[in-house]
């Protein structure tokens, strides 16, 4: 049943634009229901700030059901906060106690420049998908959907990889700021399906090379997997690397279409 938490101290990163150097500011929330979600606590703080005539804290959020991937936040140094396989929007104040001090920062990664306060620019992810994260299939020409049977375990494992919400926690958690989990999840999804075979090696090569233009390199820390709100397995990185290695040979010899 509902309780009220008292005296929550928030240290929040404020940055008035990409060029501003930014700093932490301290706020106090006197009382908040433990039924409130973490973002509702920030809504409440923002209402308070507007009442005081101050500018509200900017943060990204939308569906608040853990599926759109818009929300972010490093909470006490952890991407999406302390609860495993939970996006920030699904984190609730009952995970904290009265008097807690909570440090809130934006995603920190060279490829995700800060726009304002807690909001970052993740469009590098879109560039990766645009470079090959699709199956070319012009509208109207598709054969009957049941023409290609796909074994259930293959479909299930493709679905596991496809569950990625593109939030960027993997990059934020990685000491190298690498995007291998995000990129490989898409490669693993499409490359494991029969429909994805025609472009398999082209896809692996162009997505990984596009990724390298923006992000750091993977050194198998595994922080991405533990930060992922959808529990995408780090195995996908091995699968993508294997395809990338083959791609470098096959594409070089122009036999990728075989």
């Amino acid at each position: 049943m509902s309780n009220h938490l008292k005296d929550i101290i928030l240290k929040i990163w404020r940055q008035n634009g990409p060029q501003d150097s930014g700093r932490f500011e301290t706020y106090k929330v006197d009382e908040i229901s433990d039924e409130a979600s973490f973002l509702e606590m920030l809504d409440y703080l923002n209402e308070q700030l507007i009442t005081e005539g101050k500018e509200a804290i900017v943060f990204d959020h939308d569906c608040r059901e853990g599926i759109c991937g818009t929300c972010s936040l490093m909470i006490n140094g952890q991407a999406h906060g302390p609860e495993r396989s939970t996006a920030t929007c699904q984190l609730h104040m009952r995970k904290f106690s009265s008097g807690a001090e909570i440090v809130i920062e934006p995603w920190r990664a060279a490829a995700f420049p800060i726009i304002k306060d807690l909001m970052v620019d993740r469009s590098a992810f879109d560039r990766i998908i645009e470079s090959g994260g699709f199956i070319t299939s012009v509208t109207g020409g598709a054969p009957d959907a049941n023409l290609i049977p796909i074994p259930k375990p293959v479909a299930d494992s493709a679905m596991d990889s496809a569950a990625c919400i593109g939030c960027g926690a993997c990059v934020a958690a990685c000491p190298n700021g690498a995007a291998n989990l995000f990129t490989s999840a898409k490669i693993a999804h499409l490359n494991s399906l029969p429909q994805g075979q025609a472009e398999r090696y082209k896809r692996a090569e162009s997505m990984i090379e596009k990724m390298d233009e923006f992000f750091g390199s993977c050194t198998n820390h595994g922080e991405c997997e533990s930060a992922c709100p959808k529990e995408i397995s780090i195995d996908v990185i091995a699968l993508a690397n294997a395809d990338y290695r083959k791609a470098k040979l096959k594409n070089k010899k122009f036999i990728s279409r075989i």
């Binding site: 699709f134 598709a142 959907a145 290609i148 049977p149 479909a155 299930d156 999804h189 399906l193 429909q195």
Partner: peptide, 14 residues
């Protein structure tokens, strides 16, 4: 048909 061709991983039977 279109969505399957694009690689949407719909649920499948064994």
């Amino acid at each position: 048909d279109q969505m399957v061709a694009q690689g949407v991983p719909f649920a499948r039977e064994y």
